[in-house]
Amino acid sequence: MLVQARALILSALLALPPLAAAAHPHVYIDSKLELIYDETGRLSAVAVEWSYDELYSLLIVTDLGLDPDGDGVLDYDERTRLQGFDADWEPDFDGRLYLTTDQGPVELLGPRSFEADYRDGRIVSRHLRPLSSPLPADAALQLQTYDPEFYVDFTLHGPPRFLGRDDCRAALDQGNPDAARAAYRAALDAALLEATDDAEAELVTVDIGGAGAGALNVICGSATTG
């Protein structure tokens, strides 16, 4: 995940026993997607919106010294200071956004155009992920957002918005959160068995891939699924 995100959440977890801290995700994000098509109808970018859970949002707001009166409203200067709080991505961080077609994975460029706001007790941030090469107009597409380390639990909401086309449709597969948790628990137990001491156990990370992840299946024009 993000360098800053891990550092902030870690400070709130230090008082927990290692297994308690590792037994579930530490951040919960509701994710929405917006598909952006160019003038020829090709998919050129995906806009990603992340709504962070209330606890994590409070940790960020407190760490940045925002909303000192606790009324849940940020003034202009405070909103300005919030911008880019989650933009400090590690070089190999993939943004936890995965696009695939029948031809395989779709390459995305790095993020840009970060924006953030704070409303109803939650930080809502937005960024843009351009495709390295626009997709053909009628390519069937699957989009997923998940964390293979299960540090963050993403919930994908749909349908997405379509900008630049009016002949696209999407079907949302909600996935199976129980499958993700079971895969994480099994992977964590296996990793802890290999740990040689408590210090190593505290640093255990796992990779469950896309187990249980939801998916948006998108078709446009004459494209078909299956």
Rank of each mutant, 00 (worst) to 15 (best):
A5Y: 07
E54T: 12
L143A: 15
A186M: 01
G70L: 02
Y56Q: 08
T100E: 15
P105M: 14
E78T: 00
P91H: 11
P148M: 02
Y56R: 06
L13A: 07
G72M: 07
R96S: 14
I123V: 15
I9V: 12
H127N: 09
H24T: 04
I60A: 04
T224V: 15
R161E: 15
T101C: 05
A116I: 00
R126K: 11
L108G: 07
L59S: 01
V46Q: 05
I123G: 07
P111F: 09
D117N: 11
L14D: 04
D173G: 03
T224E: 15
R119E: 13
R126P: 06
V124S: 08
P136H: 10
A20G: 06
V218S: 02
D198N: 06
L35R: 04
L16G: 00
G41Y: 15
S11D: 10
P68C: 01
P130R: 12
T62Y: 03
Y184M: 06
A23N: 09
A213N: 10
V152I: 15
D92H: 12
D102L: 11
A171R: 09
S125N: 13
E149I: 01
L16N: 01
L135P: 11
S44R: 13
L8P: 02
D167Q: 08
A170Y: 01
P130L: 10
D94I: 00
A201Q: 11
L8T: 00
G221F: 07
Q144D: 08
Q103T: 08
A87K: 08
D38R: 11
V218Q: 03
R122P: 03
S44F: 00
D197S: 04
L64W: 14
E90P: 00
Q103L: 05
D173I: 02
A183D: 02
D75Y: 15
L131S: 09
A7P: 00
P136I: 05
L109C: 05
D77C: 02
D178P: 03
Y118M: 03
A21N: 05
G212A: 05
P68F: 01
L2P: 03
A179N: 10
A23D: 10
G158L: 02
L82I: 07
A87Y: 12
E39T: 06
Y98Q: 11
Q103N: 09
P130M: 12
A180P: 01
L16R: 12
L97D: 13
F154M: 05
P18M: 01
S113E: 13
E149S: 15
